[in-house]
Design a binder for these strands. Structure first.
Lengths: 218, 218, 218, 218
DNA sequence: AATGAATGAGCCTTCATTCAT
DNA sequence: TATGAATGAAGGCTCATTCAT
């Protein structure tokens, strides 16, 4: 005979599985139609369950959106981690971009990212979640740049590092938009663009060098 | 005595004024609530007219969305032009960013830009309009970089230039997202970030130079 | 100088001309789209005037419908008169039918006749007008049959005559429906059908006529 | 234990019941107000359900109209069949007429018939359905007349028979209009009218028969 | 007399949510 | 737990009618 805790676990496990099934279905629908245009009926069908059942696992549609967003943000964090872990980060960014172009669901989906960002403009709860994720992402970028600099024996200005982290973040998000907008874009160009920019970011840590470059223009 | 063309002009002028009033109201509503959640009733109220009257000037809600998008794209083009014209383009980008943060309607509104991009995922007409604007923008960026390089007597690889144009475009769009997401962000950081990145973009054109620079520090 | 009554006449004449222009336009629209689906805007355009002006000559749309109906009923009466006047009434009915098929506006239009009949089901005012016209038509038919019988020296039962008048009326209206429903119908068949029925109606006095007619077909 | 087909049957049965409830409500509303003026809200109220529910069973209002029309046409066919089956068809026609006067819903409703005919002028789909039903009805009339003639040993001209079928059809439809227009009409007159006309139609082509019949009434 | 811009009530339809089974 | 029928509040849009000019 099974202990009562076993049963509880089993129940909880099943509940989580149901939640996941709903979230997967919802994500698929949201990507295809957007948060608003995707209907609960469609989500239910995609999840192969009745519309009513969804409400046993989520309070309402907005709760699903919120959950999806949180899942995506976790995904994003994982991506950043892998970006950091991989030695050839240029290639990693290019892989990210290719995944975005493919509309890969397993990665932080780019279309969903736009939807989320737009939604955050209105829903303070979502805005807050995104802001937190942003802070986290930038902190990781910063940490990464710091380690990189230290590995090179450089001691860059902290403010300078923050600026670079911000630049890196902006650039990557800009690439996400590009992936959505030009799904047939040649990835090779992106590689080149990344090669153009990111060395400058990780680069010497000597703003002077950079500055001298621009100074040379004057 | 008044010429008949006078009256025609006046009528046409008033019609255009009405269209503008509707578009301004709609833009306001769209920014606040999104394309879908914004209702015709709300737009009518914001435009201080009855809902029915709107349909004298626009076929339907979608036509309004399209018109708004086209207006925004024109705005975007103007921004790029001004970016090109101004000698201190770093400052110009920072100004852009500040405008985005303020949610300035007169500029290409950043929240609207997200909404548009999300909508383009589903509506082919919008996707097409955005794609055309993107091509145009990149061509302008490219032209700008070319002129800049020529002014320096450099003859960079065309593929290289295309990559830089793409990078510039992505970075600026990434900044737009940032502006929406962190309305209270310190602009000073952005200035620094721009200083970090853009010189690398405009830079003499030899990525080797860039790399050798950073190599020089090792 | 003109007498004041002259001016009044001129004004009244112009008013009547305007009313007619509106009615003609409305009739055209009603036939094409039906009472409900025809809009005041369309009627105004067809009448080459502004929508607002129509309300100077008619209280509202329903008044126009009513006026159209009354005009049609007058038309109908004229048709019956001509039916009576013409010696070859068989041919006259066939002509009527052909006119209905053509959708001839100058005759009592068949499509309009259906619209009117349907409307009479709901609007008591219209029902009353139609009922009066029906009474009138039947009286004329009756009178016609009486004269026909007297011309043949017969003295049929008045109840019998009433029944025949009713039959004639029903048959003709049934033909109107047929004309609307089968616009490409061969008129020859209708001629034959008329030959079949109407002699039976007129015929109590002249069996020979009846026989010779059908004999002519064999 | 219940077979799964049991449940499926029950569901399908209920669905059909709901469809019928809607159609009955719609028919009632359409008769009272016409296709256009009858609102979905009214139909829903008459069917004692919410407006939204109707759309689970019908795609849109037009689908309801179509379904109503098809139901009416089936009714019409049944009426013709019963007309043919009954020995005393004169009486049957009179019964029909009385039913039309009563606005009997179970029979082919006369007011609805007008509405349908008017609608067919504009909607090609409806026109087609009505045309098909007309062909069918006329074929049945024709068959009926043929059998009748053969029973009498007569061999009438086929063209002649077609003409009679057309005449019969027109006359009956004309009676339907009359029923709508004069709901208080004395049915006795109709009986007489029918007696006047129909013998001529069924008659072997021998006017003597025609004459002797009407002479028998005097 | 004439215009046509403006109104606003009302229509058809959708969809998140609930509830009886 | 699961279903899916049922609800009803909006939403987009039309159109008869009015009114300032």
């Amino acid at each position: 005979m099974s202990a009562p805790s076993d049963k509880i676990d089993k129940v909880a496990l099943r509940a989580q599985a149901q939640r996941d099934r709903i979230l997967n279905a919802a994500q698929q629908c949201f990507i295809r139609h957007g948060f608003h245009a995707a209907g609960m009926a469609g989500i239910a069908q995609a999840a192969q369950m009745s519309p009513g059942l969804i409400y046993r696992y989520f309070d309402n549609k907005n709760a699903i959106i919120l959950a999806i967003i949180e899942r995506q943000l976790a995904e994003k964090r994982a991506n950043i981690d892998s970006l950091q872990a991989q030695p050839d980060w240029e290639q990693r960014i290019c892989d990210l971009f290719a995944g975005w172009q493919r509309g890969d669901d397993s990665l932080m989906n780019a279309a969903l990212f736009l939807e989320m960002s737009a939604q955050a403009t209105r829903d303070p709860l979502i805005a807050q979640a995104l802001a937190a994720a942003d802070q986290d992402a930038r902190a990781r970028f910063l940490n990464w740049l710091e380690q990189h600099a230290q590995a090179q024996g450089a001691t860059p200005d902290p403010a300078d590092l923050r600026a670079r982290a911000l630049a890196l973040q902006s650039f990557i998000e800009g690439l996400a938009i590009r992936a959505v907008r030009e799904p047939d874009f040649d990835t090779a160009q992106v590689v080149a663009a990344v090669r153009q920019l990111v060395p400058g970011l990780l680069g010497s840590g000597s703003p002077t060098a950079c500055r001298s470059l621009s100074a040379a223009h004057d």
